[in-house]
Design a protein around this nucleic acid. Structure first.
Length: 545
RNA sequence: GGCCGGUUGGUGAAGUGGCUUAACACACCGCCCUUUCACGGCGGCAUUCAUGGAUUCGAAUUCCAUACCGGUCACCA
Protein backbone atom coordinates (compact mmCIF):
# COMPACT_ATOMS: atom_id res chain seq x y z
CA UNK A 1 0.00 0.00 0.00
CA UNK A 2 1.37 3.39 -0.91
CA UNK A 3 1.20 6.45 1.32
CA UNK A 4 -1.20 7.98 -1.19
CA UNK A 5 -3.58 5.05 -0.98
CA UNK A 6 -3.31 5.07 2.77
CA UNK A 7 -4.22 8.74 2.86
CA UNK A 8 -7.23 8.11 0.62
CA UNK A 9 -8.35 5.33 2.90
CA UNK A 10 -8.05 7.51 6.00
CA UNK A 11 -9.67 10.60 4.49
CA UNK A 12 -11.79 9.56 1.53
CA UNK A 13 -14.03 12.61 1.20
CA UNK A 14 -11.60 15.40 1.65
CA UNK A 15 -10.57 18.09 -0.80
CA UNK A 16 -7.06 18.35 -2.07
CA UNK A 17 -5.04 21.07 -0.39
CA UNK A 18 -4.57 22.81 -3.74
CA UNK A 19 -8.19 23.84 -3.42
CA UNK A 20 -7.49 25.75 -0.22
CA UNK A 21 -4.19 27.09 -1.42
CA UNK A 22 -6.01 28.71 -4.33
CA UNK A 23 -9.02 29.79 -2.36
CA UNK A 24 -6.97 31.73 0.18
CA UNK A 25 -4.76 33.71 -2.12
CA UNK A 26 -1.94 35.82 -0.74
CA UNK A 27 -2.89 39.20 0.60
CA UNK A 28 -2.06 42.17 -1.49
CA UNK A 29 -0.31 44.43 0.97
CA UNK A 30 2.57 46.78 0.76
CA UNK A 31 6.04 45.66 1.71
CA UNK A 32 6.58 45.43 5.44
CA UNK A 33 2.90 45.28 6.35
CA UNK A 34 2.38 43.06 9.36
CA UNK A 35 -0.49 40.63 9.29
CA UNK A 36 -1.17 39.32 12.75
CA UNK A 37 -3.93 38.12 14.95
CA UNK A 38 -5.49 37.63 18.32
CA UNK A 39 -6.37 34.01 18.81
CA UNK A 40 -8.14 33.55 22.12
CA UNK A 41 -10.05 30.58 23.41
CA UNK A 42 -13.67 31.34 24.11
CA UNK A 43 -13.42 31.53 27.88
CA UNK A 44 -15.75 34.47 28.22
CA UNK A 45 -13.35 37.23 29.14
CA UNK A 46 -10.02 38.70 28.26
CA UNK A 47 -7.29 38.79 30.83
CA UNK A 48 -4.48 41.29 31.02
CA UNK A 49 -2.09 38.95 29.24
CA UNK A 50 -4.30 38.65 26.17
CA UNK A 51 -4.99 42.35 26.29
CA UNK A 52 -1.27 43.06 26.32
CA UNK A 53 -0.77 40.67 23.43
CA UNK A 54 -3.68 42.31 21.61
CA UNK A 55 -2.26 45.73 22.29
CA UNK A 56 1.06 44.85 20.72
CA UNK A 57 -0.54 43.03 17.81
CA UNK A 58 -2.80 45.98 17.11
CA UNK A 59 0.03 48.49 17.25
CA UNK A 60 2.27 46.47 14.98
CA UNK A 61 -0.48 45.91 12.41
CA UNK A 62 -1.66 49.53 12.46
CA UNK A 63 1.72 51.14 12.27
CA UNK A 64 2.78 49.07 9.28
CA UNK A 65 -0.49 49.36 7.39
CA UNK A 66 -1.16 45.69 7.96
CA UNK A 67 -4.05 43.59 9.13
CA UNK A 68 -5.25 42.48 12.54
CA UNK A 69 -7.76 39.69 12.65
CA UNK A 70 -9.58 37.72 15.30
CA UNK A 71 -9.55 33.95 15.26
CA UNK A 72 -11.34 31.94 17.88
CA UNK A 73 -9.50 28.84 18.99
CA UNK A 74 -12.32 26.68 20.18
CA UNK A 75 -10.92 23.25 19.50
CA UNK A 76 -11.19 22.27 23.13
CA UNK A 77 -14.83 21.68 23.65
CA UNK A 78 -14.45 20.84 27.30
CA UNK A 79 -13.25 24.33 28.01
CA UNK A 80 -15.88 26.12 26.07
CA UNK A 81 -18.01 28.65 27.91
CA UNK A 82 -21.44 29.63 26.70
CA UNK A 83 -21.39 32.95 24.85
CA UNK A 84 -17.70 33.02 25.62
CA UNK A 85 -16.85 34.77 22.40
CA UNK A 86 -19.08 37.77 22.98
CA UNK A 87 -17.38 38.68 26.20
CA UNK A 88 -14.01 38.53 24.52
CA UNK A 89 -14.97 40.75 21.63
CA UNK A 90 -16.57 43.21 24.03
CA UNK A 91 -13.46 43.41 26.21
CA UNK A 92 -11.18 43.90 23.24
CA UNK A 93 -13.42 46.60 21.82
CA UNK A 94 -13.57 48.41 25.13
CA UNK A 95 -9.80 48.65 25.16
CA UNK A 96 -9.63 49.93 21.63
CA UNK A 97 -8.53 46.72 19.99
CA UNK A 98 -10.57 46.55 16.84
CA UNK A 99 -10.18 44.01 14.11
CA UNK A 100 -10.04 44.33 10.37
CA UNK A 101 -11.53 40.91 9.94
CA UNK A 102 -12.35 37.83 11.90
CA UNK A 103 -15.00 36.01 13.76
CA UNK A 104 -18.27 37.90 13.70
CA UNK A 105 -17.07 40.52 11.25
CA UNK A 106 -16.30 38.70 8.05
CA UNK A 107 -13.21 38.61 5.88
CA UNK A 108 -11.83 36.61 3.00
CA UNK A 109 -9.86 34.11 5.02
CA UNK A 110 -12.60 32.59 7.12
CA UNK A 111 -14.13 30.78 8.73
CA UNK A 112 -12.42 32.29 11.75
CA UNK A 113 -13.88 29.81 14.18
CA UNK A 114 -11.61 26.79 14.31
CA UNK A 115 -14.44 24.40 15.02
CA UNK A 116 -15.82 25.31 11.58
CA UNK A 117 -12.58 24.52 9.82
CA UNK A 118 -12.60 20.77 10.33
CA UNK A 119 -12.54 19.92 6.63
CA UNK A 120 -9.56 22.15 6.06
CA UNK A 121 -7.48 20.55 8.78
CA UNK A 122 -8.34 17.09 7.51
CA UNK A 123 -7.15 18.02 4.04
CA UNK A 124 -3.78 18.97 5.43
CA UNK A 125 -3.53 15.91 7.64
CA UNK A 126 -4.27 13.85 4.58
CA UNK A 127 -1.52 15.65 2.75
CA UNK A 128 0.89 14.84 5.54
CA UNK A 129 -0.13 11.17 5.47
CA UNK A 130 0.37 11.06 1.74
CA UNK A 131 3.91 12.27 2.29
CA UNK A 132 4.53 9.76 5.05
CA UNK A 133 4.63 12.47 7.73
CA UNK A 134 1.61 11.47 9.75
CA UNK A 135 0.08 8.25 11.00
CA UNK A 136 -2.81 6.94 13.04
CA UNK A 137 -2.08 6.05 16.63
CA UNK A 138 -4.10 3.53 18.59
CA UNK A 139 -2.49 3.97 21.95
CA UNK A 140 -4.94 4.62 24.74
CA UNK A 141 -4.45 7.48 27.17
CA UNK A 142 -3.73 4.85 29.81
CA UNK A 143 -0.90 3.34 27.80
CA UNK A 144 0.61 6.76 27.23
CA UNK A 145 0.35 7.48 30.90
CA UNK A 146 1.99 4.18 31.71
CA UNK A 147 4.92 5.00 29.45
CA UNK A 148 5.22 8.36 31.04
CA UNK A 149 5.58 6.81 34.46
CA UNK A 150 8.30 4.53 33.24
CA UNK A 151 10.06 7.47 31.64
CA UNK A 152 9.87 9.41 34.87
CA UNK A 153 11.19 6.48 36.88
CA UNK A 154 14.09 5.83 34.53
CA UNK A 155 14.72 9.56 34.08
CA UNK A 156 14.30 9.39 30.38
CA UNK A 157 12.91 12.23 28.35
CA UNK A 158 9.16 12.24 28.58
CA UNK A 159 7.03 11.94 25.48
CA UNK A 160 5.97 9.95 22.48
CA UNK A 161 9.14 9.51 20.49
CA UNK A 162 11.71 6.97 19.43
CA UNK A 163 11.09 3.57 20.90
CA UNK A 164 8.06 4.87 22.79
CA UNK A 165 6.17 5.72 19.65
CA UNK A 166 4.96 2.21 19.02
CA UNK A 167 2.25 3.05 16.51
CA UNK A 168 4.74 4.81 14.30
CA UNK A 169 6.09 1.47 13.24
CA UNK A 170 2.77 -0.16 12.51
CA UNK A 171 2.50 -1.07 8.86
CA UNK A 172 -0.21 0.66 6.87
CA UNK A 173 -1.89 -2.68 6.39
CA UNK A 174 -1.99 -3.29 10.14
CA UNK A 175 -3.41 0.14 10.70
CA UNK A 176 -6.07 -0.32 8.04
CA UNK A 177 -7.06 -3.58 9.62
CA UNK A 178 -7.43 -2.08 13.09
CA UNK A 179 -9.44 0.83 11.77
CA UNK A 180 -11.76 -1.51 9.92
CA UNK A 181 -12.13 -3.38 13.18
CA UNK A 182 -13.31 -0.14 14.73
CA UNK A 183 -10.36 0.59 17.02
CA UNK A 184 -10.34 4.23 18.09
CA UNK A 185 -7.39 6.28 16.95
CA UNK A 186 -5.91 9.72 16.68
CA UNK A 187 -3.49 11.18 14.15
CA UNK A 188 0.10 11.94 15.04
CA UNK A 189 2.89 13.76 13.31
CA UNK A 190 5.68 11.46 12.17
CA UNK A 191 8.51 13.65 13.26
CA UNK A 192 11.60 13.70 11.10
CA UNK A 193 13.66 15.55 13.65
CA UNK A 194 16.70 14.53 15.63
CA UNK A 195 16.82 15.64 19.23
CA UNK A 196 20.59 15.80 19.16
CA UNK A 197 20.70 18.34 16.41
CA UNK A 198 20.75 21.96 17.39
CA UNK A 199 18.88 24.64 15.54
CA UNK A 200 18.79 28.39 15.76
CA UNK A 201 15.87 30.66 15.38
CA UNK A 202 15.76 34.40 15.52
CA UNK A 203 12.76 35.49 17.50
CA UNK A 204 11.69 39.07 16.82
CA UNK A 205 11.65 39.84 20.53
CA UNK A 206 13.84 37.30 22.25
CA UNK A 207 16.58 37.36 19.66
CA UNK A 208 18.64 34.29 18.85
CA UNK A 209 17.25 31.11 20.31
CA UNK A 210 19.02 27.79 20.37
CA UNK A 211 16.92 24.67 20.60
CA UNK A 212 17.07 20.95 19.82
CA UNK A 213 15.07 19.64 16.88
CA UNK A 214 11.66 18.27 17.67
CA UNK A 215 11.43 14.50 17.63
CA UNK A 216 8.11 14.14 19.41
CA UNK A 217 5.25 12.64 17.46
CA UNK A 218 2.72 15.20 18.59
CA UNK A 219 -0.98 14.58 18.25
CA UNK A 220 -2.33 16.63 15.39
CA UNK A 221 -5.88 15.36 15.20
CA UNK A 222 -7.72 14.45 18.38
CA UNK A 223 -10.26 11.68 18.79
CA UNK A 224 -13.07 14.20 18.30
CA UNK A 225 -11.69 14.94 14.86
CA UNK A 226 -10.55 18.45 15.79
CA UNK A 227 -6.93 19.50 15.52
CA UNK A 228 -4.64 20.30 18.40
CA UNK A 229 -3.37 23.82 18.84
CA UNK A 230 -0.06 23.06 17.18
CA UNK A 231 -1.57 21.81 13.98
CA UNK A 232 -4.36 24.36 13.77
CA UNK A 233 -1.83 27.11 14.29
CA UNK A 234 0.30 25.96 11.38
CA UNK A 235 -2.60 25.50 8.97
CA UNK A 236 -4.51 28.63 9.94
CA UNK A 237 -1.63 31.02 10.04
CA UNK A 238 -0.47 29.71 6.71
CA UNK A 239 -3.85 30.01 5.05
CA UNK A 240 -4.63 33.34 6.66
CA UNK A 241 -1.22 34.61 5.57
CA UNK A 242 -0.11 35.70 8.98
CA UNK A 243 3.30 37.32 8.73
CA UNK A 244 3.94 37.66 12.47
CA UNK A 245 2.85 35.33 15.21
CA UNK A 246 2.79 37.46 18.33
CA UNK A 247 2.12 35.35 21.40
CA UNK A 248 3.07 34.74 24.98
CA UNK A 249 6.44 33.22 25.66
CA UNK A 250 4.97 30.10 27.24
CA UNK A 251 4.92 29.03 23.59
CA UNK A 252 8.65 29.24 23.08
CA UNK A 253 9.07 25.65 24.10
CA UNK A 254 6.65 24.58 21.37
CA UNK A 255 8.64 26.39 18.73
CA UNK A 256 10.51 23.26 17.61
CA UNK A 257 7.28 21.43 16.79
CA UNK A 258 5.78 24.42 15.08
CA UNK A 259 8.81 24.94 12.96
CA UNK A 260 8.83 21.28 11.98
CA UNK A 261 5.14 21.40 11.19
CA UNK A 262 5.58 24.37 8.89
CA UNK A 263 8.51 22.69 7.27
CA UNK A 264 6.83 19.34 6.64
CA UNK A 265 3.68 21.02 5.39
CA UNK A 266 5.77 23.00 2.95
CA UNK A 267 4.68 26.31 4.42
CA UNK A 268 6.74 29.42 4.70
CA UNK A 269 7.32 30.09 8.39
CA UNK A 270 5.97 33.29 9.85
CA UNK A 271 8.10 35.53 12.02
CA UNK A 272 7.56 34.66 15.65
CA UNK A 273 7.54 37.28 18.38
CA UNK A 274 7.31 35.89 21.88
CA UNK A 275 6.14 38.36 24.47
CA UNK A 276 7.61 38.20 27.96
CA UNK A 277 5.07 37.25 30.60
CA UNK A 278 3.42 39.77 32.85
CA UNK A 279 4.78 39.15 36.31
CA UNK A 280 4.36 40.26 39.89
CA UNK A 281 6.13 39.83 43.13
CA UNK A 282 4.55 37.01 45.06
CA UNK A 283 3.51 38.27 48.46
CA UNK A 284 4.28 35.02 50.23
CA UNK A 285 7.56 33.97 48.70
CA UNK A 286 8.85 37.34 47.53
CA UNK A 287 9.72 35.80 44.19
CA UNK A 288 8.80 37.25 40.84
CA UNK A 289 6.34 35.01 39.07
CA UNK A 290 3.95 35.06 36.20
CA UNK A 291 0.56 36.58 36.90
CA UNK A 292 -1.83 33.78 37.63
CA UNK A 293 -5.50 33.59 36.83
CA UNK A 294 -6.26 31.85 40.06
CA UNK A 295 -4.23 33.89 42.49
CA UNK A 296 -4.22 37.36 41.06
CA UNK A 297 -7.42 39.36 40.68
CA UNK A 298 -5.50 42.08 38.88
CA UNK A 299 -5.15 39.82 35.89
CA UNK A 300 -8.81 40.18 34.98
CA UNK A 301 -9.67 43.31 33.05
CA UNK A 302 -12.80 43.62 35.15
CA UNK A 303 -10.50 44.44 38.06
CA UNK A 304 -9.56 47.75 36.42
CA UNK A 305 -13.12 48.44 35.51
CA UNK A 306 -14.10 48.05 39.10
CA UNK A 307 -11.10 49.92 40.46
CA UNK A 308 -12.03 52.88 38.28
CA UNK A 309 -8.86 52.89 36.21
CA UNK A 310 -9.80 54.27 32.80
CA UNK A 311 -9.18 52.33 29.65
CA UNK A 312 -6.92 55.08 28.39
CA UNK A 313 -4.72 54.80 31.46
CA UNK A 314 -4.40 51.04 31.12
CA UNK A 315 -3.39 51.45 27.50
CA UNK A 316 -0.85 54.06 28.42
CA UNK A 317 0.57 51.67 30.97
CA UNK A 318 0.72 48.81 28.49
CA UNK A 319 2.57 51.12 26.14
CA UNK A 320 5.15 51.89 28.81
CA UNK A 321 5.87 48.25 29.46
CA UNK A 322 5.78 47.27 25.79
CA UNK A 323 8.64 49.58 24.87
CA UNK A 324 10.75 51.11 27.58
CA UNK A 325 11.55 54.05 25.35
CA UNK A 326 7.89 54.96 25.15
CA UNK A 327 7.77 56.71 28.48
CA UNK A 328 10.47 59.16 27.59
CA UNK A 329 8.94 59.83 24.22
CA UNK A 330 5.56 60.45 25.77
CA UNK A 331 7.04 62.93 28.20
CA UNK A 332 8.37 64.90 25.28
CA UNK A 333 5.27 64.56 23.15
CA UNK A 334 2.60 65.50 25.62
CA UNK A 335 0.04 66.33 22.98
CA UNK A 336 0.32 63.01 21.15
CA UNK A 337 -1.42 59.71 21.73
CA UNK A 338 0.34 56.47 22.51
CA UNK A 339 -0.87 55.30 19.16
CA UNK A 340 1.48 57.74 17.45
CA UNK A 341 4.52 56.07 18.93
CA UNK A 342 6.33 53.56 16.77
CA UNK A 343 6.79 50.37 18.73
CA UNK A 344 9.52 47.94 17.78
CA UNK A 345 9.91 44.29 18.65
CA UNK A 346 13.53 44.54 19.56
CA UNK A 347 12.74 47.06 22.29
CA UNK A 348 10.28 44.79 24.00
CA UNK A 349 11.28 43.21 27.27
CA UNK A 350 12.70 39.69 27.17
CA UNK A 351 12.67 38.37 30.71
CA UNK A 352 9.40 39.41 32.22
CA UNK A 353 7.41 42.59 32.68
CA UNK A 354 6.52 43.51 36.20
CA UNK A 355 2.90 44.50 36.28
CA UNK A 356 3.33 47.11 38.95
CA UNK A 357 0.09 48.55 40.24
CA UNK A 358 1.90 51.54 41.73
CA UNK A 359 3.37 52.40 38.39
CA UNK A 360 -0.05 52.02 36.82
CA UNK A 361 -1.38 54.51 39.30
CA UNK A 362 1.26 57.05 38.45
CA UNK A 363 0.58 56.58 34.74
CA UNK A 364 -3.10 56.93 35.41
CA UNK A 365 -2.55 60.22 37.21
CA UNK A 366 -0.81 61.56 34.16
CA UNK A 367 -3.70 60.37 32.07
CA UNK A 368 -6.26 62.10 34.28
CA UNK A 369 -4.27 65.30 34.37
CA UNK A 370 -4.82 65.71 30.64
CA UNK A 371 -8.57 65.41 30.71
CA UNK A 372 -10.88 68.40 31.03
CA UNK A 373 -12.82 68.84 34.26
CA UNK A 374 -16.00 68.05 32.37
CA UNK A 375 -14.58 64.80 31.07
CA UNK A 376 -13.44 63.75 34.51
CA UNK A 377 -16.85 64.66 35.85
CA UNK A 378 -18.77 62.72 33.26
CA UNK A 379 -16.62 59.63 33.36
CA UNK A 380 -16.65 59.61 37.14
CA UNK A 381 -20.40 59.96 37.07
CA UNK A 382 -20.68 56.94 34.79
CA UNK A 383 -18.42 54.99 37.06
CA UNK A 384 -20.17 55.89 40.29
CA UNK A 385 -23.56 55.11 38.79
CA UNK A 386 -22.39 51.54 38.66
CA UNK A 387 -20.18 51.29 41.72
CA UNK A 388 -21.15 54.05 44.13
CA UNK A 389 -24.73 55.15 43.51
CA UNK A 390 -25.01 57.37 46.55
CA UNK A 391 -21.98 59.41 45.52
CA UNK A 392 -23.27 59.56 41.99
CA UNK A 393 -26.41 61.30 43.29
CA UNK A 394 -24.22 63.93 44.92
CA UNK A 395 -22.31 64.40 41.72
CA UNK A 396 -25.54 64.97 39.86
CA UNK A 397 -26.88 67.32 42.48
CA UNK A 398 -23.70 69.41 42.52
CA UNK A 399 -22.74 69.19 38.89
CA UNK A 400 -21.37 72.68 38.24
CA UNK A 401 -19.83 72.82 41.68
CA UNK A 402 -18.02 69.54 41.10
CA UNK A 403 -16.77 70.60 37.70
CA UNK A 404 -15.48 73.83 39.20
CA UNK A 405 -13.77 71.81 41.90
CA UNK A 406 -12.18 69.46 39.39
CA UNK A 407 -11.08 72.40 37.34
CA UNK A 408 -8.84 73.88 40.02
CA UNK A 409 -5.28 73.95 38.69
CA UNK A 410 -6.30 71.84 35.74
CA UNK A 411 -6.31 73.96 32.62
CA UNK A 412 -2.76 75.08 33.03
CA UNK A 413 0.43 73.92 31.46
CA UNK A 414 1.27 71.52 34.24
CA UNK A 415 -1.89 70.36 35.92
CA UNK A 416 -2.24 68.68 39.30
CA UNK A 417 -1.93 64.95 39.48
CA UNK A 418 -4.03 63.93 42.39
CA UNK A 419 -6.56 61.69 40.72
CA UNK A 420 -5.53 58.25 39.55
CA UNK A 421 -8.91 56.56 39.38
CA UNK A 422 -12.60 57.43 39.43
CA UNK A 423 -12.61 56.30 43.02
CA UNK A 424 -10.11 59.00 43.90
CA UNK A 425 -12.60 61.77 43.23
CA UNK A 426 -14.47 60.82 46.35
CA UNK A 427 -11.37 59.79 48.22
CA UNK A 428 -9.66 63.13 47.58
CA UNK A 429 -12.61 65.51 47.70
CA UNK A 430 -15.25 64.02 49.94
CA UNK A 431 -14.94 66.95 52.31
CA UNK A 432 -16.30 69.27 49.67
CA UNK A 433 -19.72 67.69 50.02
CA UNK A 434 -21.58 68.57 53.20
CA UNK A 435 -23.54 65.37 53.04
CA UNK A 436 -20.32 63.41 53.39
CA UNK A 437 -18.70 65.88 55.73
CA UNK A 438 -21.60 65.95 58.14
CA UNK A 439 -22.19 62.24 58.22
CA UNK A 440 -19.00 61.87 60.21
CA UNK A 441 -19.20 62.17 63.96
CA UNK A 442 -15.98 64.05 64.01
CA UNK A 443 -14.55 64.96 60.62
CA UNK A 444 -11.37 66.09 62.30
CA UNK A 445 -10.62 62.89 64.09
CA UNK A 446 -7.48 62.31 62.10
CA UNK A 447 -6.03 65.70 62.93
CA UNK A 448 -3.37 65.16 65.53
CA UNK A 449 -1.36 68.33 65.37
CA UNK A 450 -2.00 71.01 67.93
CA UNK A 451 -2.93 74.23 66.16
CA UNK A 452 -3.16 77.74 67.56
CA UNK A 453 -6.87 77.80 67.03
CA UNK A 454 -7.40 81.21 68.59
CA UNK A 455 -5.42 82.77 65.73
CA UNK A 456 -7.60 80.99 63.24
CA UNK A 457 -10.72 82.27 64.97
CA UNK A 458 -9.42 85.81 65.02
CA UNK A 459 -8.47 85.65 61.38
CA UNK A 460 -11.92 84.60 60.24
CA UNK A 461 -13.66 87.06 62.53
CA UNK A 462 -11.65 90.09 61.63
CA UNK A 463 -9.79 89.60 58.35
CA UNK A 464 -11.25 87.01 55.99
CA UNK A 465 -13.37 88.52 53.24
CA UNK A 466 -14.62 86.21 50.60
CA UNK A 467 -14.84 89.03 48.08
CA UNK A 468 -11.09 89.44 48.03
CA UNK A 469 -9.24 88.25 44.99
CA UNK A 470 -6.48 85.74 45.49
CA UNK A 471 -3.72 88.27 45.69
CA UNK A 472 -5.46 90.44 48.26
CA UNK A 473 -6.54 87.40 50.19
CA UNK A 474 -3.02 86.15 50.44
CA UNK A 475 -1.40 89.44 51.34
CA UNK A 476 -3.94 89.80 54.12
CA UNK A 477 -2.98 86.39 55.41
CA UNK A 478 0.62 87.43 55.46
CA UNK A 479 -0.12 90.60 57.32
CA UNK A 480 -2.25 88.83 59.84
CA UNK A 481 0.18 86.01 60.35
CA UNK A 482 3.04 88.40 60.73
CA UNK A 483 1.30 90.43 63.40
CA UNK A 484 0.42 87.28 65.29
CA UNK A 485 3.89 85.91 65.61
CA UNK A 486 4.37 83.95 62.40
CA UNK A 487 7.45 84.37 60.29
CA UNK A 488 6.97 85.88 56.85
CA UNK A 489 10.54 85.42 55.93
CA UNK A 490 11.87 81.95 55.60
CA UNK A 491 15.45 82.81 56.36
CA UNK A 492 14.54 84.64 59.53
CA UNK A 493 12.50 81.70 60.65
CA UNK A 494 15.31 79.31 60.02
CA UNK A 495 17.70 81.36 62.00
CA UNK A 496 15.40 81.68 65.00
CA UNK A 497 12.65 79.15 64.82
CA UNK A 498 11.87 79.39 68.50
CA UNK A 499 11.01 83.07 68.34
CA UNK A 500 8.06 82.41 66.02
CA UNK A 501 4.86 80.40 66.28
CA UNK A 502 5.57 79.11 62.84
CA UNK A 503 5.65 80.29 59.27
CA UNK A 504 2.96 81.62 57.00
CA UNK A 505 2.78 78.15 55.56
CA UNK A 506 1.90 76.81 59.00
CA UNK A 507 -0.87 79.30 59.27
CA UNK A 508 -2.14 78.31 55.84
CA UNK A 509 -2.01 74.69 56.84
CA UNK A 510 -4.26 75.43 59.75
CA UNK A 511 -6.82 77.08 57.47
CA UNK A 512 -6.59 74.17 55.10
CA UNK A 513 -7.09 71.59 57.80
CA UNK A 514 -10.06 73.47 59.14
CA UNK A 515 -11.68 73.69 55.73
CA UNK A 516 -10.81 70.26 54.39
CA UNK A 517 -9.56 68.19 57.35
CA UNK A 518 -6.45 67.49 55.30
CA UNK A 519 -3.01 69.01 54.92
CA UNK A 520 -3.06 68.54 51.17
CA UNK A 521 -5.72 69.94 48.91
CA UNK A 522 -6.04 71.91 45.71
CA UNK A 523 -5.30 75.58 45.83
CA UNK A 524 -6.58 76.84 49.15
CA UNK A 525 -8.04 80.05 47.81
CA UNK A 526 -10.22 78.22 45.31
CA UNK A 527 -11.34 75.75 47.91
CA UNK A 528 -12.37 78.51 50.29
CA UNK A 529 -14.24 80.29 47.51
CA UNK A 530 -16.08 77.14 46.58
CA UNK A 531 -17.00 76.37 50.15
CA UNK A 532 -18.30 79.88 50.79
CA UNK A 533 -18.23 81.88 54.00
CA UNK A 534 -21.28 80.34 55.58
CA UNK A 535 -20.03 76.78 55.39
CA UNK A 536 -16.57 77.90 56.41
CA UNK A 537 -17.95 79.39 59.59
CA UNK A 538 -19.83 76.21 60.34
CA UNK A 539 -16.69 74.19 59.94
CA UNK A 540 -14.71 76.69 61.96
CA UNK A 541 -17.07 76.27 64.89
CA UNK A 542 -16.79 72.55 64.65
CA UNK A 543 -13.03 72.74 64.39
CA UNK A 544 -12.72 75.00 67.45
CA UNK A 545 -14.57 72.61 69.68
C1' G B 1 14.58 15.56 36.01
C1' G B 2 15.05 17.13 30.40
C1' C B 3 14.77 21.36 27.25
C1' C B 4 14.60 26.82 26.81
C1' G B 5 15.15 31.53 28.86
C1' G B 6 16.38 35.32 32.62
C1' U B 7 19.65 37.63 36.70
C1' U B 8 21.96 45.79 36.07
C1' G B 9 20.48 50.97 42.75
C1' G B 10 14.61 50.61 47.06
C1' U B 11 11.54 49.53 42.21
C1' G B 12 10.81 49.19 36.69
C1' A B 13 14.49 49.30 33.34
C1' A B 14 18.34 51.52 29.15
C1' G B 15 22.73 49.66 27.63
C1' U B 16 25.36 43.81 23.01
C1' G B 17 33.64 45.30 23.45
C1' G B 18 36.35 51.62 24.45
C1' C B 19 31.66 57.73 23.84
C1' U B 20 29.35 54.39 30.75
C1' U B 21 33.14 57.84 36.56
C1' A B 22 25.88 52.90 33.88
C1' A B 23 20.49 56.67 30.54
C1' C B 24 15.48 57.46 31.86
C1' A B 25 11.16 56.83 34.94
C1' C B 26 8.79 55.65 39.79
C1' A B 27 9.84 55.86 45.05
C1' C B 28 12.71 58.24 48.81
C1' C B 29 15.82 62.38 50.74
C1' G B 30 17.69 67.51 50.33
C1' C B 31 17.49 72.36 48.14
C1' C B 32 14.89 75.95 45.14
C1' C B 33 10.41 78.39 42.95
C1' U B 34 5.11 80.55 43.40
C1' U B 35 6.43 83.39 51.01
C1' U B 36 -0.38 78.15 50.80
C1' C B 37 -1.17 72.65 48.75
C1' A B 38 0.25 70.89 44.37
C1' C B 39 2.77 71.37 39.60
C1' G B 40 7.71 72.29 38.28
C1' G B 41 13.24 72.94 38.53
C1' C B 42 17.97 71.36 40.55
C1' G B 43 20.81 67.90 43.29
C1' G B 44 21.54 63.14 46.13
C1' C B 45 20.52 57.83 45.68
C1' A B 46 24.69 51.12 41.66
C1' U B 47 32.91 53.11 41.88
C1' U B 48 29.28 48.85 39.81
C1' C B 49 26.08 45.27 36.44
C1' A B 50 24.10 37.25 40.62
C1' U B 51 29.02 34.49 41.91
C1' G B 52 33.69 32.35 40.29
C1' G B 53 36.98 31.73 36.38
C1' A B 54 38.64 32.65 31.12
C1' U B 55 39.43 35.69 26.45
C1' U B 56 41.07 40.90 25.54
C1' C B 57 45.37 46.52 25.74
C1' G B 58 40.16 47.17 27.41
C1' A B 59 33.81 43.47 29.41
C1' A B 60 27.58 45.02 32.30
C1' U B 61 28.46 43.74 27.20
C1' U B 62 32.13 37.48 24.51
C1' C B 63 33.10 32.28 26.48
C1' C B 64 32.87 28.40 30.49
C1' A B 65 31.18 26.82 35.21
C1' U B 66 28.10 27.62 39.70
C1' A B 67 23.87 29.63 42.22
C1' C B 68 19.14 31.53 42.18
C1' C B 69 14.48 32.77 39.53
C1' G B 70 11.04 31.78 35.64
C1' G B 71 8.69 29.12 31.43
C1' U B 72 7.60 24.37 29.40
C1' C B 73 7.37 19.04 29.03
C1' A B 74 -1.43 16.85 27.44
C1' C B 75 -6.11 13.86 22.64
C1' C B 76 -5.48 22.51 26.92
C1' A B 77 -4.76 26.43 24.35
Amino acid sequence: MTDREFADFLFPDVKDISYYEEKYAPRNLKEGAIVTRCAPSPTGFVHMGSLYQGFIAKQMARQTGGVLFLRIEDTDQKREVENGVDGIVKDFMEYGITFDEGYGMGGNYGPYLQSERGEIYKAYVKYLVSKGYAYPCFCSPEEIDENRKIQEATKERIGYYGRWSTCRNLTKEEAVERIKKGDPYIMRLKSQGDFNKKHFYHDAIKGDLEYPENDLDHVILKSDGLPTYHFAHAVDDHLMHTTHVIRGDEWVSSLPVHLELFHLLGFETPQYAHIAPLTKKDEETGNIRKLSKRKDPELAVSYYHEAGIPVGAVNLFLATIANSSFEEWYLQNQDKSYEDFTFTFDKMPIGGSLFDLEKLESVSKIYFSKLSAKQVYEETLDYTKEYDPSFSKLLEKYKDYTIALLNIEREIERPRKDIGSYKDVKKEFWYMYDELFNEKDNPYEEVTKDYAKEDLKAYFETVYDEKDDQETWFSKIKDFASSHGYAVNRKEYKENPESFKGQVSDFCEMIRVMATTKTISPNLYDILQLLGKERLMQRLNLFLK
